[in-house]
């Protein structure tokens, strides 16, 4: 499922069409400091304060599986830390997050944004203030790496030896 987000973003600009998996994934992958910084700028403590915490941010592990030989049956490669959280907005929508790493604020904000995306009232705030900037930053980072990699591609030339 690599690059799903980016591929889809090139094609659509409407988050609600892209679907919940895409925004939850984007929120999970984003660096915690970017997410918390963007959320502070939203400055809507009312949303957060009226939300009910269903599951406090909790850190655990997900076992990452590889494939034998690269494409075969699975094997257990090693674990990664993940933090999850679930909240319910005053209007009743439930937001769920699973974010990479151990940052509890990141998980809480991601759950709130997921819930906001399910409302008509707040989804625009979530898109403009959080999802679009995160997607842009993710896309630019990937693009820069891809261009750096491309610049290190070997161009072979053949030496013509004496006849």
């Amino acid at each position: 499922m690599t690059n799903t987000i980016n591929e889809k973003f090139v094609a659509f600009s409407d988050w609600t069409k892209i679907g919940r998996s895409a925004w939850i994934s984007l929120l999970s992958k984003a660096p915690a400091n970017e997410v918390t910084k963007l959320w502070e700028q939203v400055s809507r403590p009312d949303i957060e304060n009226n939300a009910q915490i269903i599951r406090r941010p909790e850190t655990g592990m997900v076992m990452v599986r590889g494939r034998i030989g690269g494409a075969g049956n699975s094997f257990n490669l090693g674990e990664m830390t993940v933090t999850r959280c679930a909240i319910r907005l005053a209007s009743g929508e439930t937001g769920i997050s699973y974010v990479a790493g151990r940052n509890k604020a990141h998980a809480r904000i991601a759950a709130i944004v997921d819930a906001m995306m399910q409302t008509t009232e707040f989804s625009n705030i979530a898109i403009d203030a959080i999802l679009d900037p995160l997607e842009k930053s993710d896309r630019e980072k990937k693009k820069a790496n891809s261009r750096k990699a491309k610049a290190t591609q070997v161009e072979f030339f053949t030496m013509v030896t004496g006849r």
Partner: peptide, 21 residues
Amino acid sequence: RTTLPRFGFSQPVETAQMAVH
């Protein structure tokens, strides 16, 4: 790591789709 609960298992990773550096 022994102090943390396990949430589950990932899908097997598709290294063929790696964003290659």
